[in-house]
Amino acid sequence: MSDRFTGTSNYVAGEDLMMAVNAAVSLERPLLIKGEPGTGKTMLALEVADALKRPLVQWHIKSTSKAQQGLYEYDAVSRLRDSQLGDEKVKDIGNYIVRGPLWEAFESDESAVVLIDEIDKADIEFPNDLLRELDRMEFYVYETKQLIKAQKRPVIIITSNNEKDLPDAFLRRCFFHYIRFPDKETMKKIVDVHFPGVKKALLQRALEVFFDIREIPGLKKKPSTSELLDWLKLLLAEDIPVEALQSSDNRKTIPPLAGALLKNEQDVHLFERLVFLSKRAS
């Protein structure tokens, strides 16, 4: 097996997350990741593939996704169309079998990293339909009577936003990790990794403003790590001086470019109202 995952130059992983990833890698079991939006669930798979130098196969789930699409699809419609046109291709059914991401990963020469992103978006039966495939890492193509078996068992990373509960049988086969919202220290490390040049004072203030905003009760969507990173990027691009942030003491003014942090109209209104109230009170 290759090296252990210890985070990468642009991804900060907590000790607990590293443990979960390493357990999943060495035991060749799927790893299920949950957590607040924007805490880097999807990024994890990309970074694991990068760190372990393995090919990455991505499968993004939509509400219409079917488990079968991950394995293969039999494109019956084009075959029917071809048959009406008298195409020669039609005689070999294999021409109409379209490989899915899991097939790609199973066939790969080196063990791949598979990302199944937002599995909770799919129908409630979706995970159940993948049980055997994830467990045995093999499946059967009925049309061509082939058994596809993983040469090297891939590392499978599954993310979920908790919109639907996943079935127990599925959960039993996975390792599980919940990515917590990072505390100030970790957040500093994360920002450091993304913007090594950022000025200390600016970062300090920006983080304070950020955590202040997160504390506001009643926000519909609290800003998360990815929003913070976007906001910092903007602050740096616009070359906003530290003083501009400084004045946001006591929540008397709206911090510059706040639109990057608050993405919901109602939240922006709420925030403006709070600022207005505290202004009037002082």
Partner: peptide
Amino acid sequence: VDNFYFLSRASLVKDE
């Protein structure tokens, strides 16, 4: 003990 805690949590608990 810390590592054991993380490992056992990742393998035994499936819901935050």
